[in-house]
Write a protein that binds this DNA or RNA. Sequence first.
DNA 1: AATATTTACGCAAACGTTTGCGGGAATGGT
DNA 2: ACCATTCCCGCAAACGTTTGCGTAAATATT
Lengths: 337, 337
Amino acid sequence: MRRITIKDLANMLNLSTSTISRALSDHPDISEATKSRVKETAGRLNYRPNLQARFFRKKHSGLIALILPEIHMFYNPSLIEGVNAAIADTPYSLVIFETNNDIKQEKEAIQQCIRWAVEGVMISVTYNTNKHSMSHLEELALANIECVMYDRIIPDTSFPSLTIDNQLAAKKGVNILLENGHRNILGIFANPSLAITRERLKGYNQAFEEYGLVPNPDHILNALQVNLMDNILPVLLSNKTFTSIFSMTDELLFSTTNNLRKLNLSIPDDLSVVAISDGIFTNQFYPKITYIEDSGKRMGAAALHQLIEYINHPSREKKSRHLPTDIVLADSVKRIE
Amino acid sequence: MRRITIKDLANMLNLSTSTISRALSDHPDISEATKSRVKETAGRLNYRPNLQARFFRKKHSGLIALILPEIHMFYNPSLIEGVNAAIADTPYSLVIFETNNDIKQEKEAIQQCIRWAVEGVMISVTYNTNKHSMSHLEELALANIECVMYDRIIPDTSFPSLTIDNQLAAKKGVNILLENGHRNILGIFANPSLAITRERLKGYNQAFEEYGLVPNPDHILNALQVNLMDNILPVLLSNKTFTSIFSMTDELLFSTTNNLRKLNLSIPDDLSVVAISDGIFTNQFYPKITYIEDSGKRMGAAALHQLIEYINHPSREKKSRHLPTDIVLADSVKRIE
DNA sequence: AATATTTACGCAAACGTTTGCGGGAATGGT
DNA sequence: ACCATTCCCGCAAACGTTTGCGTAAATATT
């Protein structure tokens, strides 16, 4: 039970392989009569082109790689869903690499991409990837593989990137709290070695400044790792007189809600909460959390389209883009005077 | 800047392509001297084998496909992580297809697998895939592609499967509640068209029966879709006198916790809770939830290894296996008399 | 009717790698 | 010194597909 090939079809129909090939791809050189004859038998015999051979001959792989630091509960599942939905309308297939926030695994993933001759790479880098350790990314460029960075990017490089306007998003979020009378706003942030953290931090501060207020550096919690939250957050909340919390991600928000429950504090009666969020957790949670939307689904689709754009037009100028962000108001903010 | 090939190396070193190929793969026919000479220049010139060409010639693709119904917050991220970690030690790469619980997309994914000539498929089927609609799976067999089902399987088919012992797991979970004195146990279950739901339901009932009790069918909630929980659960909890809840998945558990908060009911003071869970949500949640572990990570690794086993030994007898389940006790169960 | 064009197909090479086979040179044994 | 091995390496085919080029027949043009 060997797999049926173009040669088989050629033999059965007394045609050459070239005619079969052209007939199947609707080449104008082939008459309608033979086209339908070929297609009919191909369908009947369940012929499936060998993509390996095709792409080998055509010198491209039909593969697009998605490299991400981790696949945990938040954001990335949504992102994968977005990429998957978008790639269904294209001739490409998706391979996914997970780096576990380890730059060594990131390098290994890139080597894999080169060996597979993928046609494009979408990457969200690890904590430790920065301007001075991106030789592996430059290898991609040398191999003529298009690359866009998304979400966790390295700013100010020659690689195009796609993010939301992180500073603006954070500013919008904090603004909601300020406008509702909050002044003591605990800002919960991730690892500051990530550009995304620094940008969102800027937005937090900028919101205060534009309001004519001075942000208090003591009101910032930098959770180098999420599980440290359980130690730090209770201390912070018991000592200070916060009336609200701004969380820069879903992951930190989840940890926050658990800690609030542990401290017997409720949202929004004891503390108002605003987050930058994918939208899934914040909408399903009770009470629904007010958030600035950073949709993984939309990001995934947009990043893919941008990448395919570059693949199809390699010479086109590469630039970094921002996705717009919506404000979604819900039940987690209480107005105070 | 063309990519460097074996031919290039052959020309530069005045050797034949066959010698280069053999030298790079440590063939005994090649002397150590030339081996090191070849490897040195290959390394220096950054030679990367063209996997498309290699696999094309060798008549396999080096690809393994993972087909899953959805990538939401729970389980599947963990599963992907497990597969990814395990596949790193193998010569295979992973492609992921998401079917959105749509049998049409599932069929499409399988067609893709055949066209790509993947060497194995790991699949968790949709709600609507059953014994009478699995012609696409049989096509896989015809194409000599190995296939294992995991998690959401079709029972009693010729395809090997990998699951936990769902009935046993549910029984274990309900048992914990029974042993702690609970008799009115709300069972929260998913769509009964899934075999996994029916199995776990059996376990729920069996636990009662082995305890000499008669399970009450009115104590079963079948959430055909998760978002329906918000309507049904409050009604059920206000009418009946439940003292505890058994949830068959993380997803349903999450919805449950939100509804409990809405109703101002706390765990475990008002209601004890036990779930079958991947372990991530239950451990991070406050209070920590007692659960029967169904680890996506472990499942992913195990399914992959089983699949590779079949790929390497196609004639080996295929059988369905169960993964053992651990009980993880935490803070969500209160003893009552 | 002679020439020009179009139509419809076949020939053969090419993509990069692996591998069966063959053979010259070096080595071993007597 | 002769034969049998062993050691290294090259030749060439093969995997399935696409595609530039060539060409005979059919059709169009004058």
